[in-house]
Amino acid sequence: MSTIERLTSDMTAALKARDHFALGTLRQVIGAVRAEEKAGKVARELTDEQVQAVLVGEVKKRRESATIYAGAGAQDRADNESAEADLIETYLPAALSDADVDDLVARAIAEVGATSVKDMGQVMKAANAAAAASGGRVDGKALSAKVRAALTPGT
């Protein structure tokens, strides 16, 4: 079952169970996926990987909103945003551990033959491809920091 099919099925189940929180969150996520499908000059059907990329973006938006709300003293809204992000994350593959990311970066550097920070773009491309192939999820900022540290002399 594809991710969008799971989302739709779970939305129907939430509707029947009268779970307003899950229903609202899933409607928003499905709406974001449908909007992405219609973005551009020609409507298209998204692949499962593209749907997951939309979900990653939705999680990121909610985490940033939660941080802003918490900083503004609106803890109830921050908690709601965090709960929505947690719900959406259940539809994403598991995040890779730090050890897995370190191994992935080392293999990408060896594969590309990188020797300096100038090769960072090639290493990032290879590392992202390897992460996608492994079925795991990796945070772009964390990956970038690890690649930079690995390619910087003296670290």
Rank of each mutant, 00 (worst) to 15 (best):
M1V: 10
S2W: 13
T3V: 11
E5G: 13
E5K: 12
E5Q: 12
L7P: 00
L7M: 10
T8L: 15
S9Q: 14
D10N: 14
T12N: 14
T12D: 15
A13T: 07
A13E: 13
A17N: 07
R18D: 12
R18Y: 14
H20Q: 07
F21A: 04
A22C: 07
A22L: 09
L23V: 03
L23N: 07
L26S: 00
L26F: 03
R27H: 10
I30T: 04
G31M: 05
A32I: 01
A32T: 00
A35N: 04
A35Y: 04
E36S: 02
E36T: 00
E36A: 06
E36Y: 00
E37D: 03
E37A: 02
K38Y: 00
A39F: 00
G40R: 09
K41Q: 09
V42W: 08
V42I: 10
R44Y: 03
E45F: 07
E45I: 12
T47V: 05
T47K: 07
D48P: 02
Q52F: 09
Q52G: 11
A53R: 10
A53P: 06
V56H: 02
V56M: 10
G57F: 09
E58S: 00
E58R: 00
V59T: 06
K61D: 08
E64G: 07
E64A: 05
S65G: 05
A66H: 03
T67A: 14
I68E: 14
G71W: 10
G71T: 05
G73Y: 14
Q75K: 08
R77M: 15
D79V: 12
E81I: 05
S82A: 15
S82T: 07
A83E: 13
E84V: 04
E84P: 01
E84Q: 06
A85Q: 03
D86W: 15
I88R: 03
I88P: 03
E89V: 11
T90I: 11
Y91S: 00
Y91E: 04
L92Y: 01
A94M: 03
A95F: 02
A95Q: 13
A95N: 14
L96S: 02
S97A: 01
S97Q: 01
D98A: 09
A99F: 03
D100C: 08
V101Q: 12
D102E: 13
D102H: 06
D103P: 03
L104H: 01
A106G: 04
R107I: 15
A108I: 05
V112H: 03
V112E: 07
V112L: 02
V112W: 03
G113M: 04
S116K: 00
D119W: 06
M120N: 04
G121Y: 01
Q122C: 13
V123P: 01
V123K: 04
V123F: 02
V123W: 02
M124A: 08
A126E: 08
N128V: 02
A129Q: 13
A130R: 11
A131M: 15
A133N: 15
A133M: 10
S134W: 14
S134A: 13
S134I: 08
G135C: 08
G136K: 02
V138H: 06
V138I: 06
L143P: 00
A145N: 14
A145C: 08
K146S: 02
K146M: 02
K146L: 01
K146G: 01
V147A: 08
L151I: 08
G154C: 10
G154I: 11
T155Q: 15
